[in-house]
Simulated scan of single mutants.
Amino acid sequence: MKIADRDREQLIRWRRHLHQYPELSFKETNTSAFVSEALKRMPFLEISRPAPTAVMAVLRGRNPGKTLAIRADMDALPIEEKNTFEYRSSVPGVMHACGHDGHTAMLLTTAKLLSENKEKLSGEIRFIFQHAEETPPGGADELVNAGVMDGVDYVIGTHLWSPLETGKIGIVYGPMMAAPDTFKVTVIGKGGHAGLPHETIDSITAAAQTISSLQQIVSRATDASEQLVISVTQIAGGSADNVIPGSVEFGGTVRSFNEELRNQIPGKIEQIVKGVTDAHGASYKFDYTKGYRPVINEERTTRILHQTAAGLFGEDSVTLMKPVMVGEDFSAYQQKAPGCFFFTGAGNKKEGITFPHHHANFTIDEKALEIGVKMLTKAAEAFLSSDHE
Results as ranks from 00 to 15, higher is better:
residue 183 F to L: 06
residue 24 L to P: 10
residue 30 N to E: 15
residue 266 P to D: 08
residue 31 T to S: 11
residue 171 I to K: 05
residue 37 E to S: 14
residue 123 G to D: 13
residue 8 R to D: 10
residue 48 S to K: 07
residue 2 K to H: 08
residue 99 G to V: 05
residue 136 P to Q: 12
residue 176 M to N: 10
residue 375 M to K: 00
residue 75 D to S: 04
residue 60 R to N: 11
residue 267 G to F: 11
residue 241 D to S: 12
residue 382 A to M: 11
residue 177 M to C: 03
residue 16 R to L: 02
residue 325 M to Q: 05
residue 180 P to A: 15
residue 291 G to T: 14
residue 328 E to Q: 07
residue 129 F to P: 10
residue 77 L to R: 12
residue 354 T to P: 01
residue 71 R to Y: 12
residue 314 G to Q: 11
residue 152 V to W: 05
residue 8 R to Y: 12
residue 385 S to G: 12
residue 375 M to S: 14
residue 18 L to H: 10
residue 13 R to D: 15
residue 224 A to F: 08
residue 202 D to G: 03
residue 145 N to G: 14
residue 188 I to G: 03
residue 69 A to E: 00
residue 247 S to V: 04
residue 174 G to C: 04
residue 306 H to V: 01
residue 64 P to W: 10
residue 37 E to R: 14
residue 349 K to L: 03
residue 67 T to W: 08
residue 109 T to G: 07
residue 198 H to R: 04
residue 169 I to R: 03
residue 52 P to T: 03
residue 118 K to T: 14
residue 5 D to S: 04
residue 168 K to R: 14
residue 264 Q to L: 14
residue 308 T to R: 02
residue 200 T to E: 11
residue 349 K to D: 09
residue 79 I to E: 11
residue 57 A to G: 09
residue 256 S to M: 03
residue 108 L to T: 02
residue 357 H to A: 08
residue 78 P to I: 11
residue 85 F to C: 07
residue 188 I to M: 02
residue 131 H to S: 06
residue 255 R to A: 04
residue 244 I to K: 02
residue 371 I to N: 01
residue 63 N to C: 02
residue 324 V to R: 05
residue 261 L to V: 02
residue 82 K to D: 04
residue 337 A to T: 06
residue 286 F to G: 03
residue 96 H to L: 01
residue 388 H to F: 13
residue 239 S to C: 02
residue 378 K to S: 15
residue 249 E to C: 05
residue 309 A to D: 12
residue 305 L to F: 11
residue 273 V to N: 13
residue 148 V to S: 08
residue 137 P to N: 13
residue 227 Q to N: 07
residue 269 I to D: 00
residue 252 G to Y: 12
residue 60 R to G: 07
residue 217 I to P: 08
residue 138 G to C: 09
residue 294 P to H: 07
residue 91 V to G: 00
residue 125 I to H: 06
residue 263 N to S: 12
residue 270 E to D: 13
residue 316 D to I: 05
residue 19 H to P: 03
residue 159 H to E: 11
residue 49 R to H: 15
residue 91 V to P: 01
residue 274 K to Y: 05
residue 116 E to A: 10
residue 313 F to Q: 04
residue 174 G to H: 09
residue 39 L to G: 08
residue 287 D to N: 11
residue 178 A to S: 13
residue 26 F to I: 02
residue 199 E to C: 06
residue 67 T to M: 10
residue 151 G to L: 07
residue 378 K to M: 02
residue 210 T to S: 03
residue 160 L to W: 01
residue 238 G to V: 09
residue 118 K to D: 00
residue 136 P to M: 15
residue 82 K to C: 01
residue 59 L to S: 10
residue 347 G to T: 09
residue 204 I to S: 04
residue 172 V to C: 15
residue 18 L to P: 10
residue 380 A to S: 15
residue 186 T to W: 05
residue 328 E to K: 03
residue 157 G to K: 07
residue 171 I to G: 00
residue 172 V to R: 08
residue 372 G to W: 08
residue 179 A to S: 15
residue 353 I to E: 00
residue 303 R to Y: 12
residue 364 I to K: 07
residue 356 P to C: 04
residue 319 T to H: 12
residue 315 E to T: 09
residue 138 G to L: 11
residue 313 F to W: 00
residue 83 N to A: 00
residue 276 V to R: 04
residue 42 M to S: 13
residue 49 R to Y: 06
residue 14 W to N: 12
